[in-house]
Amino acid sequence: MARTSSTTRLAVLSASALLLPGVAAWGAMGHEAIAYVASNFVATGTKTYFQDLLGDTSADYLASVASWADSYRYTSAGAFSAPFHYIDAQDNPPSSCSVDLDRDCGDDGCVVTALANYTTIILDSGKTKAARAMAAKMVIHFTGDIGQPLHCENLETGGNGIDVSYDGEDTNLHAIWDSDIPESISGGSTLASAKSWATSLTTAIKSGTYKSQAASWVEDVSVSSKSDIEAMAVEWATESNAYVCSTVLVGGVSAVEDKELDGAYTTKAQPVVSLQIAKQGYRLAKYLDAIVAAA
């Protein structure tokens, strides 16, 4: 499978952004939902720490910066960070799915190494508060990105090159996983939609569908070293990537390309999207707790 260079991928993603304003990894609403789930589970000391670091004492202190990294990557100053939003799994879906850090993380970095590097910056007391705040925004965002299956896949630029239709509109496979399918669950694209969805997911984690699973989601959370963080992130990416074979492209590219996907396909995808949003929100909470404990 041909390797997609960071430059080529950035060009494709930039073109997609021009065609689809507001589309980002999980879409802003998805990232905000993850942040709100995290807000519902962080320790009190963690909340205080990050409210101070981010300069926001409101209940939206995580959600308000959850999509900052997507805006930043399209600026001249932030263009370098584009490769940090994904890892290009060189696998062969739907026959086989896998993630290998040495094979799949490009020379310019990837979401796995970015999580480790920016976490290290947060923990470095020698860094300015502004640098640590920026790093926190990156960590909040990339913890969400790594839960989107197509952010852990190289094929057709993470699905950006697979044309599909959704509700009669021409789009691409990556975009519907970012925004259309999440919004079909939450009922909208607003901050209020994200908060409401997060409330439902929080209940599912505390006492519902996800209660028996939640502890296992955070068993490998560690900020002890860069290698520990990378190992943790590879596990998260591997989980996400597996859904490319089981759900996203279960029938191969031909099963979705140029097809209308707002019916049965979306119905099958919705439980996966809900699970990944809940999982990464809960993981973000425990990860931020670990950062504060280490700090």
Rank of each mutant, 00 (worst) to 15 (best):
17 A>D: 01
71 S>L: 07
209 T>D: 09
5 S>P: 14
46 T>F: 10
131 A>V: 08
283 R>V: 15
32 E>N: 04
268 K>Y: 09
112 V>E: 05
190 T>Y: 02
138 M>C: 05
176 I>Y: 02
78 G>V: 04
242 A>W: 05
61 Y>F: 15
13 L>P: 07
81 S>E: 07
214 A>N: 00
127 K>M: 11
69 A>P: 09
27 G>D: 05
137 K>L: 06
161 G>D: 13
15 A>Y: 11
20 L>V: 08
136 A>G: 14
144 G>I: 00
291 I>P: 03
217 W>E: 06
123 L>N: 05
230 E>C: 15
81 S>K: 08
272 V>L: 12
128 T>C: 01
7 T>M: 14
183 E>M: 01
9 R>S: 15
136 A>Y: 09
72 Y>C: 07
107 D>T: 15
195 K>E: 13
11 A>C: 06
43 A>D: 15
93 P>D: 02
24 A>T: 11
152 C>E: 10
167 D>I: 07
109 G>M: 06
162 I>Y: 04
232 M>I: 09
228 D>P: 11
90 Q>M: 14
294 A>I: 11
236 W>A: 14
184 S>L: 06
19 L>V: 00
57 T>H: 15
202 T>I: 04
278 A>W: 05
157 T>V: 13
40 N>K: 02
126 G>Q: 04
22 G>M: 01
8 T>I: 12
203 T>D: 14
16 S>Q: 11
13 L>N: 09
128 T>D: 09
79 A>Q: 00
261 L>S: 09
248 V>I: 05
51 Q>S: 12
35 A>R: 00
27 G>P: 00
153 E>L: 08
141 H>K: 04
261 L>A: 01
50 F>L: 12
